[in-house]
Design a protein around this nucleic acid. Structure first.
Length: 511
RNA sequence: GGUCCGUUCGUCUAGGGGUUAGGACACCAGAUUUUCAUUCUGGUAACACGGGUUCGAUUCCCGUACGGACUACCA
């Protein structure tokens, strides 16, 4: 078996989509599993769509996700350059080869002429309007024009493209690792442009030439390429590279969560979740999009989630480290159908990975948020807070977001709950509770617990009934970590102060 | 329109000629927790439809419907 060499080949036309990360991941997993190589090639042959910063974004996204590149842009390697715009002369050479062998031809048709041709065919009721074996002889190209005129036009600098001469009547078949046998009749493929008039190759030419030159063994890419895969097979054949042709695996698409259709940025925005790995501001529109990283997704959790969108190991295990994924991954177990993107599951994965961390590992998350708020905190206190909050945290920022009350008294209280449950018993109980607290030297978990019991006995009211109101008084909300622990962390004085505030300001329910 | 690809709980999916069609997320209920969450237990919920083949089809075949991709000098 030949060395596994795979490539991730994005275009720098904007932020890398989350589906791109999944494609990169599958490539990476296959490479690692077979001790092969993972290449990164930048397909920047369309100069009109080039977006500054996009390449850096791709690199940073992959690095964040932990998808390591062995060879390619940002890394170098024996097949450099890995940026297609820097390989122009290579493609030119291969296009000339096809030209010389009569497998491609020059075409001079203007946009208007192409449009007229399509209109004409449409009017005739033709089912498709392609530049193909049936129409090419009616167009202006090196097949229909005298050789010296062609030469003259080129010498005169008239714009031209090079088109592939697709055979008229042939069944082209390929074996896709995911979909099995796929066959397409050559009449369905048009005479694709190989070299554009600006001298740049199109995807089809550049892709095939590079994959061959870079000795790619497996092409794992999105399903949107399936219809043109037969064309690529044809190119390999024309070049005489059939024996070196990579195996193809066309991945199912990522679909939007509600309704149908491909997952787009618009849909993600609407549903309130990210679609890009990192923050991104479109340089043209200045439109800002928050990334998975900035939303608090841990890369290992996101990767685990992404891996399971269209693939599964066939067991009931769902939590897989990167090493586990490498071990378990096989192309055969990739599904055929598109997968809808459910952010709930992504959150669940994140929660699992967050909880798997020790309290110590959690501390930096809280400290980072506090740093942002310019609040200082001892390591010991941070450790206690993280320990108390860990079971209810989904994201690293939750320790701060849901635990602000550890540092500042609450300002917003759950008014609805107060108006419903703040009654005479609560007031009696909490007053007694404050008395008990005053008697204790310091409030720790046990002291708090004892004080609750003492107060309960003193006023003869079961503590269960008032705990929720105690929580509202201390934290403002109806849910949060263990109350005794909470009181221990905020300390005796602050506890008394907050309860006193509540006793003075909360209105008793009139029954 | 044409070509290609697809279709198992709401979602991700396992499975595969005879199964109580399994798991996970989400949702709901109960238990535990003096509060909240966690945890535990349980529950609702699926083979798109119609024909074949077969003793038997969700599974194989063919249609239909629905969805998607492609149909550029974009990738």
């Amino acid at each position: 078996m030949r060395e596994v060499r795979v490539r991730f080949a994005p275009s720098p036309t904007g932020a890398l989509h989350i589906g791109g990360i999944r494609t990169a991941l599958y490539n990476f997993l296959l490479a690692r599993k077979h001790h092969g190589k993972m290449l990164l090639r930048i397909e920047d042959t369309d100069q009109n769509r080039f977006v500054p910063g996009a390449e850096e974004y791709i690199l940073e996204s992959l690095a964040w996700a932990g998808i390591e590149i062995d060879e390619g842009v940002g890394k170098g390697g024996p097949h450099a350059p890995y940026r297609q715009s820097e390989r122009k002369s290579i493609y030119e050479k291969y296009a000339q080869q096809l030209l010389a062998e009569g497998k491609a031809y020059y075409a001079f048709d203007s946009e208007e002429e192409l449009e007229a041709m399509r209109e004409r065919l449409k009017a005739n009721g033709s089912s498709d309007q392609q530049y193909s074996s049936v129409t090419r002889m009616q167009m202006r190209n090196s097949l229909t024009l005298p050789a010296n005129e062609v030469k003259q036009k080129i010498a005169a600098g008239e714009p031209f493209v090079i088109r592939l001469m697709v055979p008229a009547n042939e069944e082209i078949r390929l074996t896709d690792l995911i979909r099995g046998e796929v066959h397409v009749h050559s009449s369905q493929i048009d005479d694709k442009v190989l070299m554009k008039s600006d001298g740049m190759p199109t995807y089809h030419l550049a892709n095939v030439v590079d994959d061959y030159l870079m000795k790619i063994s497996h092409v794992i890419r999105g399903e949107e390429w399936l219809p043109s895969a037969p064309l690529h097979v044809l190119l390999y054949r024309f070049f005489g590279w059939e024996n070196e042709m990579p195996q193809f695996a066309h991945l199912p698409l990522l679909l939007k969560a509600d309704g149908n259709g491909k997952l787009s940025k618009r849909d993600a925005d609407k549903a309130g979740f990210p679609i890009f790995p990192l923050n991104w501001t479109d340089p043209k529109t200045k439109e800002f999009s928050k990334g998975f990283r900035e939303n608090g997704y841990l890369p290992e959790a996101l990767l685990n989630f992404l891996a399971f969108l269209g693939w599964n190991p066939g067991t009931e295990q769902e939590l897989f480290s990167q090493l586990d994924l490498i071990d378990a991954f096989t192309i055969e177990r990739i599904g055929k159908a598109g997968a809808k993107f459910d952010i709930h599951k992504a959150q669940w994965f994140n929660q699992q990975y967050l909880r798997a961390k020790s309290d110590e590992e959690l501390v930096p998350f809280l400290l980072k948020s506090l740093d942002h708020e310019t609040i200082t905190c001892t390591h010991e206190k941070a450790l206690k807070i993280c320990a108390a909050m860990r079971e209810r945290a989904t994201f690293p920022q939750d320790f701060w977001e849901h635990g602000k009350f550890f540092f500042v008294p609450p300002v917003d209280f759950d008014e609805q709950l107060i108006s419903k449950k703040w009654n005479d018993d609560v007031v009696k109980f909490l007053s007694a509770f404050v008395e008990e607290l005053r008697k204790t030297a310091a409030v720790d978990f046990n002291a708090a617990k004892t004080a609750v019991e003492q107060a309960s006995q003193a006023v003869n009211i079961p503590s269960g009934k008032i705990m929720q109101m105690l929580r509202v008084a201390l934290t403002g909300g109806a849910s949060g970590p263990d109350l005794m622990v909470t009181m221990e962390i905020i300390g005796k004085d602050e506890t008394i102060s907050r309860i006193s505030y509540a006793l003075q300001n909360f209105k008793v329910k009139v029954s």
